[in-house]
Structure formats: C-alpha cells, structure tokens
Design a protein around this nucleic acid. Structure first.
Lengths: 259, 259
DNA sequence: CAAGTTTTATTTGTAGGATAATACAGATTA
DNA sequence: TAATCTGTATTATCCTACAAATAAAACTTG
C-alpha cells in the first residue's frame, strides 16, 4: 500500500506528489501539472521552467527526454515539444538530436523576461533577489527620468501625471500599487528610448513583491506620495537633474523599507 | 508569362520573391525560407519574426493562420506551431483559438532578447537603433563598472584584465572586437548583479554593429586602448567613481565616431 | 594492441491527420 | 428587442510514423 503526500510551496502551487512506503521515503517526485489555467503547453513550460530556475536541474545537465515528460505529465509529446520550444526561446535550454535538452549556463537565461522573473520570484533566495531588483532600479530609473524630462511629449507627461493622481486617490493598496507601476512605466516610455521599455518588467516585479512589505501607516504613504509628485513635477518642468535626484530619493526611501 | 525577381536585403538574406506581370508589379510577396542553417521551426520563427519586427505586420493585426504559413513555407503545421510558440515566448504575439495569432503591442516585445535584437538590426531604421543602443550603454555601463570596482572577485578582475590585454594584442580587427565584447561582458559579470548580465546582448549588438564604423587608423585604436586600460585600472584599484568616469569617456569617444 | 571505421541505438526533428475546445457571428425564438 | 442557440473558422491537443543526427558500441585493419 502506498502513502502519497501532495507537496505544495508557500505560493500555493503544486510541486509534486511524494510517494512513501512505510518509513522509507521514496525520492522520486512525480511532477504534477497545474491544469485549468491556460493551455497545456504553457502549463508544461511553466512546470519545467520553474524546476530549472529553482535549480533542480543545474546548468549543463540534460533533462529527461520528451517521451518521459509526456508520460509524467500525461500529455502528448507535441505539447511537450511546444513547451520546450518556449523554454528554448527564453534561452533556458538548447536541444539537439540524440543529446536531448541541455540546461544552458545561467548567464544565457533571459532573466529580464516576464515569465522567468515570475518563476524566479518563487525561488528560494528571495531577499537577495529583491535587493538585486532594487539595485537595478537605482541604475536605470534616475537616468530614465532624466531622459523623460528632456524628451517627453505632451501625451506622455499626461500619462505620468494621471498615474500620479491615481496613486493619491486609490481606494485600496493593490490599486495604489497598480497605479504606482503605471507611473514608473509611463516614465520609461517618456524617455523615448525603446530599449528601456522592456525593463518595465523589473519595476513591475519589484513593486508587486515589495508592496507586501510596505507599511500601511498613513504618514509613510503620504511621504511616498510627496516623493512621487516631486518626480512628476521635475519631469513636467523639464528639469533632468532634479528628476534624477527625486527618483534617487524615492528609491532610497523604499530601500529603507526593506532593511 | 511571369517575371520573378528574388528580393534580398543588404545583409544577404532572402526576403521573398516578387512576382511581376509586364509592368504591373504584384504586391504579394511570397515568403522564402532560408533553409540549411538549423532546424525548420527555427527558420520559420526567424522568417516570421523578422517580418513582424520590420513592421510588415503591425501590432494588433492577426497573422495568416497556421495552415497558410505551412503552405507558404512548404512545411508541416507542427513546425509552424513550434515556431509560433517561440515567438509567443518572446512576447511578439499571442495566439488564441478562433482568433489566430495577434501581434502584440511593441511595448511587450522582449527587445532585449538576442534574436529579436538581431532581427531588429536588419530593420530599416538602423541609425536610430544604433543611437538607442549607445544611449542605453551610457546608462548601464558606468554604473556597472562602479559596482564592479566595489564587488569584483579575484577571478573576475583577472578576466577583465585578460580581455583588455587581448584587445591590445589582437591581430585582426574582428578579433579585437571579440575581445572588446569580452571585456565589457566581464565587467557586467564583475558587478555581481545577475540582472545586469542579460544586458550583455546590448553591448554585443552595439559593438558588432559599430565596428564597421571604427576607423582603422592606428592612432585612434591606440587612444581607445588607453581608455579601456583606464577602466581596467580603476576597477582593479577599486575606485568606483574613477571607473564611472572612465567608462563615460570611452562611450563619449565611440559616440563621436558615429556622428 | 591501437586507431580509425562502420554499425547500431537513442533522441530529437518533421510530417500529416484526427478530434476537441473556443469564440465570434448570425439565425432563431421568447 | 433581448436572450439563446447554432454554425463555422481557428487554434489546441493528441496520435502515429518516419527522417535525421549523433553518441556509443562493435568491428575492422594496420
């Protein structure tokens, strides 16, 4: 008689089923596919991708072959192949005939990809990850704001100002966070350097991971709002240096909330 | 009687076949697949991806359906589907039943992806693109160098110094460029912020597009070498501010070569 | 025995067909 | 008119079969 325990992490998604026989714990974990949301190949890509990103398959190792994934997940080989193509496109692995799919060195991963960041956020080293995110923001955002102060168009500054107002009037914390993200993305767009725009995923990720830490005290929220408005005004008045400084102040403020 | 003209761009890859009947030029361009290099689905993804990136299918429009692509390229529908999954993974499009594959707004594209960057480099607006690349570098690289000056490990500074020496002793211009790329990537790694590493594709792209513009005069090369060595020394001696300034000088120098 | 050569086995790559699910558009009905 | 049903086009999924590539084993041959 087998005794099965369903494993799940603190984020609530299923990791697998651990089989036990008496006291002997069998190490084989049968992966379980989270069905229902989206199509099958997306779910498979997510399942395999998460396991790679979490370090279950180290760079250089070859994954089980397509037939095995298909059997494990109880899906067709085609679905597995499409999933693997997705992971290939994100440079998590390369696959060659007879060899199989080999996990690429971490350097090649498209870490700035929306999905990979999400998978990464569920990985063990969360604090370290959050600090890297914030450090990245302090590199990008002051300069983006300075560029926005110089280059923004009329409609772009309108978007920034509107997001800033939405932050002030947001009824809930989650809506405030959404407006916050909109605010920073609007600044990236207003920089009018299209290469900066993909970095929005970093901001999105950071703010949505940070907002649980943000203190709900009205005083702090009011202070943060003032910092945002200072950024908005500097950009609107086309003062790049002031914008740079204002963004640095804001980021220093949220950094202080982490530590 | 039909008169066909094979179209190719200045990079030598085939774009399509333009059919002509007398003086009436038919606008339909039959896509041609560049076979031979890599697998079919990769080629298909590249062919479709390039056409999207070049603006042939504007954001919001739906692509021809899978059966049509399969017929046009004379490949199986499975191959087309795998190609489309690749483009989905890079956020160029979303595909849903009954709707088809719709091109995503440009904002969502993973522009920092290696492949997309390459496809982008073959698009019409090259000069603009190069300027955006260089602007991006001036945002990232000074700060990366400053971080590297603070955080680098022993082996990391060794890699930087070695690449710097390789630049000086490189026998050919292409080898010099390769060492140049290695140098800047080594600095990104030495920053020890893993989110910065994916930005290496920007540097790679910039340098490999720039090197055709670089004057071959020995004096200029010697000057550039001095600028690189100044960066190397500042990082090695753990002087972040000096490193920042040195990188800015280098980038200003290469900017002057463009204009 | 050593070194190269051929064969074999394993895995991904490609093809094409069958069926299901989905979502929009238009017809039908209350 | 409004709600519901039905048709239809398209992707989603699954399946089977075969092709191509290549690592490893078996086999020559000097």
């Amino acid at each position: 008689m087998w005794n099965c325990e369903v494993l799940s992490n603190r984020f609530g998604d299923l990791i697998g089923v651990q089989h036990m026989s008496g006291k002997k714990k069998v190490t084989v974990i049968t992966p379980v596919l989270k069905r229902g949301s989206g199509s099958v190949h997306i779910s498979v890509a997510e399942a395999i991708g998460k396991r790679i990103v979490r370090g279950e398959f180290l760079p250089g190792t070859v994954l089980p072959n397509e037939a095995k994934w298909a059997a494990d997940f109880k899906v067709s080989r085609s679905a597995v192949r499409e999933a693997i193509k997705i992971l290939m496109a994100k440079n998590l692995l390369v696959s060659r005939p007879k060899i199989g799919s080999r996990v690429e060195p971490k350097e090649n991963w498209s870490l700035l990809d929306h999905d990979i960041l999400n998978w990464y956020a569920t990985a063990p080293n969360r604090e370290e990850f959050l600090l890297a995110l914030q450090q990245f923001r302090t590199i990008i955002e002051p300069e983006a704001a300075a560029l926005a102060a110089v280059n923004h168009t009329e409609s772009q500054i309108l978007a920034i100002s509107e997001a800033c107002r939405d932050m002030a009037t947001a009824p809930s914390l989650s809506e405030r966070t959404a407006a916050d993200v909109r605010f920073h993305l609007a600044i990236l767009r207003a920089s009018n350097n299209e290469l900066l725009i993909p970095l929005g995923v970093i901001i999105d990720q950071a703010l949505n991971n940070l907002f649980v830490l943000i203190t709900r005290r009205a005083k702090d929220l009011h202070h943060a709002q003032g910092l945002h408005e200072k950024i908005e005004r500097s950009i609107r008045l086309r003062q790049p240096q002031a914008a740079r400084v204002a963004v640095r102040n804001l980021l220093a403020n949220s950094d202080s909330l982490i530590k």
